[in-house]
Design a protein around this nucleic acid. Structure first.
Lengths: 219, 219
DNA sequence: CAAATAAATTAGGCTAATCTAATTTACAAA
DNA sequence: TTTGTAAATTAGATTAGCCTAATTTATTTG
């Protein structure tokens, strides 16, 4: 089994590859993990020996297939536990991230699969992120950033790219909820402020920063 | 927060105090933790500095009040997770111990209390062991060992002192389940074999070793 | 293309938790 | 009360994961 620390490295590399391209830099990984670069170099050498990453000295690295599978497994557990915490225990969607970071390291495939079944094989976590199935298949979403859509169009709000408590509770406050149909009434030329019409609800005016963190499936 | 390792030491000391009297020996603790005695001595010095144990060099040790509270908290989490695994996820009572050993180290009082509520504030885990409440109160049971009861008497089977998979699945096989009313029909003089009548069910003949691992509340 | 700068690595050390081997302490028995 | 033995502790080393300071490698720019 992999250590807690190793698993966190794997997950962080996976996420950096997803967002910042295929090859990851030592300093980038050090920064997201909150450690100093020499620690990353040390750890990468060990993980490279275990065939978890492909590492070229001084030239960046990426996950090997084995590492990718571990990453998917951790993400699956993380998101299933988030669903459990919100749907069953009544946590809010902005409270569950740190808890799921602990729970994702519980090592039991049987537990994971029973939890999945108990939750009704959910397809997405409370933030709309897709949950890999037991075979590691991760459904590809057609969602795009709200900031990429023209005024006049509409779509369904299906996910966020910012998972911070502050952002999520801001959305609660202005009344934007997962699943809402959003109609883009106007985009202000000057500062890219979005005026949105929420299906059956009031209007909301949000900044470009916000529009850039909302994922929408166009209708 | 305490480390995983520290928590395991605390829990083990608590259990040894419960079963083997108030003061624990280095070698006894080493043995249950699967480490060598010098490791225990080292760790005890650290835990003593943190006021978790009361330690007298070469003369044994016991939990300090602070350590006792930590132990109760871990036991509470362990037993609540066992209830969750059996009642909600459908695990058998002989499968849950090792998983609960991992889950008991999740550090969140809020999670623990929400889980407790979700499970309906259970008083005992799937093996009949009492669950401390949120204030650390642990209900004192009136259960006694079946082996201490005279032939002719009867009682309700409420717990086990052996939590091994082999023992628990043996009980399943012979059809002895938690909550059963057991009537002691006969105790064989020669080898202390017990002949039991299970309420509404068939008879069972069990060895003294088994009778010594069953907890009963006399009726 | 050489120099300056930024990023990565090496070198050497620290702490937590473990180990083996050697020594000391506690206690029981003669 | 001395002695023998079992238990406990000290001494010294190891591994995982981290650190700072020094050095090397890669990249950008004049």
């Amino acid at each position: 089994m992999h250590s807690f620390t190793e698993e966190n490295y794997i997950k962080a590399i996976y996420k950096l590859q997803e967002s910042n391209g295929d090859v990851v830099a030592t300093s980038a990984l050090a920064s997201v993990l909150g450690v100093h670069p020499p620690s990353v170099t040390d750890m990468l050498k060990k993980m490279s020996r275990k065939k978890l990453v492909i590492y070229h000295k001084s030239k960046g690295f990426k996950l090997a297939e084995k590492g990718r599978q571990v990453a998917i497994g951790i993400i699956r557990k993380h998101r299933l536990w988030e669903v459990f915490l919100v749907d069953k225990l009544g946590f809010r969607w902005d409270e569950v991230h740190d808890l799921a970071e602990e729970l994702e390291h519980i090592h039991s495939e049987l537990l994971t699969n029973k939890l999945d079944a108990y939750l009704g094989y959910p397809k997405a976590d409370p933030h709309g992120d897709p949950i890999p199935d037991a075979n590691g298949e991760l459904p590809k979403s057609k969602a795009v950033l709200l900031s990429s859509i023209q005024a006049g169009n509409l779509g369904k709000f299906t996910g966020v790219t910012d998972h911070s408590t502050s952002f999520l509770s801001y959305l609660d406050k202005v009344g934007i909820s997962l699943g809402d149909t959003i109609h883009i009434k106007h985009v202000e030329e000057y500062d890219k402020t979005y005026t949105l019409q929420l299906k059956g609800k009031k209007e909301a005016v949000v900044s470009h920063k916000v529009a850039n963190s909302l994922l929408i499936i166009e209708e």
